[in-house]
Design a protein around this nucleic acid. Structure first.
Length: 731
DNA sequence: GGGTTTAAGATTTAGACAGCATGTC
DNA sequence: CTAAATCTTAAACCC
């Protein structure tokens, strides 16, 4: 089927033809036949890179041309930026794109006159809770990676959000994009959508199991001639020898690092001089942000064209590695599942070294077929590779057969709704009530009946009753004979987007704070408080931690506002110690300990520190808001702490930190040089300041203070990449 | 006796969303 | 009720 034949406005067809697309892929053509261009909803369960995005784009553009508005829901912030960048290319068609995620937000007024808005599912939910008016003028919603409904953490949000959007606008067209799943029909029925299922790919994908000296595919074999000290190294050097790139998936961060280190050693001899020069350049980039052990390791690997990639890396490093891999200046990435879904980062060969993953309850368990297929699907760059190969590794003959049967030849599992649990329902029931979406128990049940859970599993009323009891007992809702109403606390909790259980823990602690007579360390009290909520993922307790944490706990025992559990109550007590451990780390951060000290002592990655701090800012802000509502005595302290956690500074730097371009490091440097606040900087000489932090920054600081005698740089800021301001100031 | 190798025992374990206020989009 | 790779410590070994 040709683009030219489609029932689309001419300028849209011209746009695609100008970019070289003339012909639809088979699954796309099938979708057209099923009527998605006539406004019908569609579930496309087809492999990655086989043209899902194009389907979504055409549906959105057609609807927008008719005066509509589109929302594109993604599971990852990184994916949101990727899609946003793509949709900005529609500017020539008069289509304006916008983006809304937790760390990259646009104001409501700005979004309302955008035609396509990209948002994460949680952000969409939050926008619904905050009553963004433009949501009711949507005509198309795209749900990308909709199989995520299966996720226990995040699936419920996605399905409830879709149900809400549908109810808000019954005529809404839903375009759901999914990996291949076992029960696509069931999901499509729920969405009242047409279904397209296909295994078709633009680049052939060969899946096989490596055993002995050969990759065994379902109907042929490929002998690997390059020997290696182990299977992974043999497979990698084979790929490189034929000019391809490799991604190796491992099940722990440590493994991914050690694989990369081994490869770096064994491969370096085989690279050409030009390649080595390119590697060195990447190494320089990595070194610009290198302060910790992990960074040094990464730099050492990258020098040989190899990298590791996992969530312990800081954001900058992840970007550097991803981009270098795209430019082929990194040849191999060893990673954890970070790269399995989402980002578009294909490779000639994908090696799935571990098909098992640790689970606290069950030990090492085999990963779902769905996840294996997601990793395998990374193999083969469309238009660049002749084919892609996904390789599992068997340790013995029996395993060869098992892997063949259980993964290569297996179909992905059915996805199931995880909405039917109290933790999931707590938040969504409260938000439904708080936003007046449901005014009584009957309405609430009717709404919940439209979720995928109800479609698949049945009635939710028992869980709803339990959750209502909880919310009423915690004074977040008021239940009368015929009405459900949220209290101010309930509305605030819903708006802040925190777990109602977190809110109740915070409320209890703040009530306790009102009764305190003696002075105590409020900073520690607040830090431990937020660390004990379920929204902050507490740190793993190591055996060697017990000693110092118990001592630390003793020192602060009179500061805590939460109840200290009995030592005999093992689970509770461990959770408590863990919250203290987390609080101690945040305390190091707001007292300006350096990154290296924290990551080394806690044995975590710089990326973990960053993520934890972001969560803590959010919860500390929420604590301040709740404290304000309850008229508790900690509002100011909590507000201040939220700012301090955001920047990682002690109290005395709070004034300096207001300056743009000044983070924890520069603020400290200014302070030590005697400039203790912005006032003190007003009349300082440019050259004096330049000696301290470089001319450009100095000029930028002074111009912010209203000085006219400094040259104002017209160049755009270069350091705008996400999280760069906190850790790195290489001047 | 000092240093090295090996075996037994102990330890550790993936990922990533959300508020708010503002510079542009 | 369930695992496995890696790190640490203890013990054996060599000259």
């Amino acid at each position: 089927m040709k683009i030219a034949e489609l029932d689309l406005p001419t300028d849209i067809k011209d746009f695609y033809e100008a970019s070289g697309i003339r012909e639809l892929y088979p699954p796309q053509a099938e979708a057209v036949k099923k009527g998605f261009l006539d406004g019908k909803s569609l579930l496309a369960a087809i492999p990655t890179a086989s043209g899902k995005t194009l389907l979504a784009e055409m549906a959105m553009l057609k609807s927008i041309a008719a005066g509509g508005k589109a929302l594109y829901i993604v599971p990852l912030k990184a994916l949101a930026s990727e899609k946003f960048e793509r949709f900005r290319q529609f500017e020539g068609l008069g289509v304006r794109a916008g983006i809304s995620t937790g760390d990259y937000d646009s104001k409501d007024e700005w979004l309302k006159d955008r035609d396509i808005i990209v948002a994460t599912s949680e952000k969409t939910d939050s926008l619904l809770r905050n009553g963004a008016p433009w949501l009711s003028s949507l005509t198309v919603v795209v749900a990308d990676e909709v199989h995520l409904i299966d996720s226990a953490n995040r699936g419920p949000t996605l399905e409830v959000t879709l149900a809400k959007l549908k109810r808000l606008n019954p005529a809404l067209q839903i375009i759901a994009l999914s990996a291949t799943i076992g029960n696509a029909k069931e999901l499509a029925d729920w969405m009242k959508a047409q279904l397209v299922v296909s295994e078709w790919r633009p680049t052939e994908l060969k899946e096989g199991v490596f055993f002995g000296r050969a990759i065994n595919f379902s109907n042929d074999k490929r002998v690997i001639k390059t020997p290696g000290p182990d299977d992974v190294q043999a497979l990698v050097s084979d790929t490189l020898a034929e000019g391809g790139q490799c991604i190796v998936f491992a099940n722990t961060r440590k493994s991914s690092e050690s694989i990369a280190q081994k490869l770096a050693k064994s491969l370096s001899r085989k690279m050409t001089e030009e390649e080595k020069a390119a590697f060195l350049e990447v190494k320089q980039q990595v070194m610009r942000h290198a302060e910790t052990d992990t960074c040094a390791k990464l730099a050492a690997c990258v020098e040989h064209g190899v990298a590791f990639h996992h969530a312990g890396l800081k954001g900058e490093h992840r970007h550097i590695i991803e981009n270098a891999f795209r430019k082929n200046t990194v040849k191999v990435i060893a990673c954890t599942p970070t790269l399995a879904a989402g980002l578009n980062l294909p490779a000639r060969r994908v090696i799935i070294r571990d098909y098992r993953r640790f689970d606290v309850n069950y030990g090492n368990v085999p990963i779902p077929v769905l996840e294996y297929k997601q990793m395998a699907g990374r193999a083969g760059r469309p238009g660049l590779d002749p084919y892609g190969e996904a390789v599992l590794i068997a340790k013995n003959y029996d395993e060869l057969g098992e892997l063949m049967e259980n993964y290569v030849l297996s179909l992905p599992e059915q996805i199931t709704s995880k909405l039917g649990t109290e933790p999931a329902m707590r938040a969504h029931v409260l938000s439904a009530i708080a936003t007046d979406f449901c005014g009584d128990v009957i309405g609430l049940n009717e709404f919940m009946d439209t979720t995928f859970y109800a479609h698949q599993r049945g009635d939710l009323s028992a869980v709803i009753d339990n959750v209502l009891d909880f919310l009423e007992a915690e004074r977040m809702i008021i239940r009368t004979a015929d009405r459900l109403r949220a209290t101010e606390l309930g509305r605030l909790t819903s708006r802040l987007y925190i777990d109602p259980l977190s809110a109740s823990i915070i409320v209890r602690a703040l009530e306790a704070s009102k009764k305190r007579q003696e002075p105590y360390n409020t900073e520690m009290a607040l830090l431990q408080l937020i660390a004990s909520t379920p929204d902050v993922k507490s740190l793993y307790l190591r055996r060697s931690d017990y000693g110092w944490i118990i001592k630390y706990t003793d020192e602060h025992i009179s500061d805590f506002l939460t109840d200290v559990p009995d030592v005999g109550d093992e689970t509770d007590f461990e959770a408590f110690l863990s919250s203290v451990k987390t609080a101690a780390l945040v305390d190091m951060w707001v007292n300006e300990k350096n990154e290296e000290e924290m990551t080394a002592f806690y044995n975590i990655g710089p990326g973990d520190v960053r993520n934890l701090m972001e969560t803590c800012v959010w919860l500390m802000h929420s604590t301040a808001e709740i404290s304000h509502l309850l008229k508790a005595p900690l509002t100011r302290e909590a507000r201040e702490l939220a700012v301090r956690i955001d920047y990682g500074v002690s109290k005395e730097l709070m004034d300096l930190i207001e300056l743009e371009g000044v983070g924890r490091v520069r603020a400290r440097r200014l302070y030590e040089a005697g400039y203790k606040n912005r006032e003190a900087l007003k009349h300082v000489d440019l050259q004096v300041l330049a000696a301290l932090m470089g001319e450009k920054v100095a000029a930028k600081i002074l111009s912010q203070l209203g000085r006219k005698d400094v040259p104002v740089s017209t160049e755009p800021d270069e350091e705008v990449m996400g999280q760069s301001t906190l850790f790195s100031f290489g001047d």
